[in-house]
């Protein structure tokens, strides 16, 4: 197979080093500028005109290089390389790319702040990952880390969703893989064998449920949900089947909140933020309107509590 003719973008380690160097050079230039213009001697002038100017040119050039690669990374399809142990993306990050593994292996990890992290799956050559967050318009549900040196093709959201929309076979394949992965995740996350762990998990789940409901009044939230038009898109029962959807120019992918996994990876904080700022305000679909001025924070917390109660 011919090697793909794609731009090869720097990995996170190289990007981090380049950006660090840029920051240090610019900070040095700023200090030299302050000293030179306020204490103009032959020494400070020499340092500023030779070292300071060179630092600004080099530092700004490196920063522009990083900005350009970041832009290219999210606007097209490119080659990326990660060293073994490097994180490709983290749980909770905004999903912007789908990765196809050319060589190497990765592992998907569910991070648990209060417990130990759990490996959900390992993937190798020819497999892809990162599609869930793009299709469900939600944050990353797991952290993906390179187990070995990894070469991959990174495809931006626009490219992937276009292919997804126009290639039925790809759609079928992706949906099948997503279903399989969800089942696998459910199985792995629920397979804690010892009674103690089972008990701990059950206790944690109970506490989380209690915390979710304690944060807001679900009954009040239901009333607000229906009064302020949430149901028009999200449906009367929160199943993502609102009557307005077929009338939209582009039909967004909606979640069925009665699905126990629909809220995986979605924190209360994020749900409140997206309701306040709208989809556009958090880098999501602009179809989700902002309610920050219309509803108080307590009212939005009540709506979130109602959404959680649907599961």
């Amino acid at each position: 197979m011919n090697k793909p003719d794609l731009i090869r973008l720097p990995g996170p380690r190289l990007r981090g080093r380049v950006l660090l160097l840029s920051k240090l050079l610019i900070l040095l230039a700023a200090v030299l500028t302050l000293v030179s213009v306020n204490l103009c001697t032959a020494l400070t002038l020499s340092l500023f005109l030779i070292v300071g100017q060179a630092a600004v040119i080099a530092g700004a050039g490196l920063a522009l290089f990083v900005a350009a690669t970041d832009f290219l990374r999210t606007r097209g399809t490119s080659e990326v390389h990660f060293n073994a142990g490097e994180t490709v993306f983290r749980q909770g990050d905004v999903g912007d790319l789908v990765y196809v593994i050319v060589s190497g292996e990765v592992e998907a990890i569910r991070e648990d702040p209060d417990g130990e992290d759990k490996v959900l799956a390992t993937m190798g050559e020819g497999e892809y990952f990162g599609e869930m967050a793009l299709l469900s318009d939600a944050p990353r549900t797991a952290t993906v880390r390179a187990r070995t040196d990894l070469d991959a093709i990174a495809m931006a959201r626009a490219d992937f969703t276009t292919l997804y929309a126009y290639l039925p076979n790809l759609r079928v394949n992706v949906e099948s893989v997503m279903t399989e992965r969800k089942a696998q995740n459910r199985e792995r996350l629920g397979s804690k064998s010892s009674f103690g762990m089972l008990l701990a998990g059950a206790t944690a789940a109970a506490l989380m449920a209690s915390a979710a409901h304690a944060a807001g009044d679900a009954a009040a939230g239901e009333s607000l949900y229906k009064k302020h038009g949430c149901a028009q898109c999200h449906g009367m029962e929160g199943k993502g089947d609102g009557y307005l959807l077929p009338m939209l120019k582009e039909t967004p992918t909606m979640r069925d909140w009665s699905d126990p996994e629909a809220l995986d990876g979605l924190t209360d904080e994020f749900m409140i933020e997206i309701t306040e700022k709208g989809g556009e305000g958090v880098g999501k679909s602009e179809i989700m309107l902002k309610y920050g001025k219309k509803l108080s924070r307590d009212e939005i917390v009540d709506i979130v509590a109602y959404i959680r109660s649907l599961q």
Binding site: S22, K23, A29, V56, G59, A60
Partner: peptide
């Protein structure tokens, strides 16, 4: 890192 340093320079 890019805009202001150039004017600063």
């Amino acid at each position: 890192l890019t805009i202001l340093p150039i004017f600063m320079m």
